[in-house]
């Protein structure tokens, strides 16, 4: 029990469990299965972008990707335009979205490296450029996804969306990369002390380049998946991921100061955020109070998770 409580990710799962129990207590058990299915369906997207953001944040103070919402919006339009409602083009569309996201990630890194702009400013300004490209490229082009693709994003096996299985496999992969591969260890080393990492022979700039490119590519994939699930691309489809991609990283127990990452915590935090929305919607809380409660509860969970550290 004590070892379990010392895991930084346990708090996000506990938070998710508490809001879930509160919700089904309120509904007296009505729709329990449906609530879980909806939560899993919506959480997968946050998990994927959150994982990308986690790698970036782990690089150390100041590293963050604020271009994710615009990146996701553009990739959703690219994917739907390439697929053009044709089932045979699904794979090509996914690759195009991946490419679009990758290009955004690479552009972000180039801004940071060549022009020496701090990542916050660089990714924020690139998001304005991407948004403008998206508006001119995607205007009036709300193309619907091919039927086969739209169905795929909604397939469930005993109430569990197939995308959730895929995303769990992805998370396992991300955890292995982080803890076993040279690249993942390098990200952690840079986050702990960039100078020490450089002196130890870590190719700092190459690792940073790979990390921003990876985060961009994951944003691109998420854009394509969202366009399938929400039946169409739109400019603001990724808006909520500006805040939530960072929130799940922090709630999930990854250090904002960098050098300490946590993959399972992202799942707990993503489920927590969706279930929190479910709970407030079910309780019928007024919109203003809803925002206040969301803020307070997130602060509460982060404090609980951080409180452990202070005890040591």
């Amino acid at each position: 029990m004590k070892t379990l409580l010392s895991k930084p990710w346990i708090w996000s799962f506990l938070g998710a469990l508490v809001v879930f129990l509160a919700t089904i207590a309120f509904t007296r058990g009505v729709g329990t299965g449906g609530i879980l299915t909806a939560a899993l369906s919506l959480a997968v997207f946050t998990v994927i972008v959150g994982t990308g953001q986690m790698f970036v944040i782990t690089l150390g103070p100041g590293n963050v990707d604020l271009s994710l919402p615009a990146n996701i919006g553009l990739a959703s339009a690219v994917a739907m335009k390439v697929m053009d409602g044709n089932d045979a083009m699904i794979a090509v569309g996914l690759l195009a979205a991946l490419g679009s996201g990758l290009a955004v990630g690479v552009a972000n890194y180039l801004l940071i490296r060549l022009l020496r702009i701090p990542p916050i400013i660089a990714t924020l300004s690139s998001s304005f450029i991407i948004l403008s490209i998206d508006i001119s490229y995607g205007r009036g082009l709300q193309i619907k996804p091919p039927p086969g693709y739209a169905d795929f994003t909604n397939i469930q096996i005993v109430g569990i969306p197939i995308l959730a299985f895929v995303t769990v496999a992805f998370s396992v992969g991300a955890a292995i990369v982080l803890s076993r591969l040279v690249y993942g260890r390098s990200v952690l080393a840079i986050g702990q002390n960039i100078r020490a990492a450089w002196l130890a022979g870590v190719p700092v700039e190459r690792v940073r380049f790979l990390t921003y490119a990876l985060c961009g590519a994951l944003g691109g994939i998420t854009g394509a998946l969202l366009a399938g699930y929400f039946r169409g691309a739109s400019v603001d489809i990724g808006n909520e991921y500006l805040l939530s991609s960072i929130a799940v990283v922090v709630i999930g127990g990854t250090s904002v100061a960098g050098g300490k990452a946590n993959v399972p915590g992202i799942w707990g935090a993503a489920l927590f955020l969706v279930l929190l929305l479910t709970m407030l919607n079910t309780f019928g809380v007024s919109p203003g109070l809803r925002l206040v409660l969301t803020g307070l509860i997130i602060v509460g969970v982060i404090t609980a998770a951080g409180g452990q550290k202070a005890l040591r």
């Binding site: 919700t23 309120f26 509904t27 009505v30 729709g31 329990t32 299965g33 449906g34 609530i35 299915t37 909806a38 939560a39 369906s41 919506l42 929400f230 969706v274 929305l277 479910t278 919607n281 079910t282």
Partner: peptide
């Protein structure tokens, strides 16, 4: 869509 999906099961 997201908001409706979260509330629908319990309605």
């Amino acid at each position: 869509q997201k908001a409706v999906a979260t509330i629908l099961p319990s309605l």
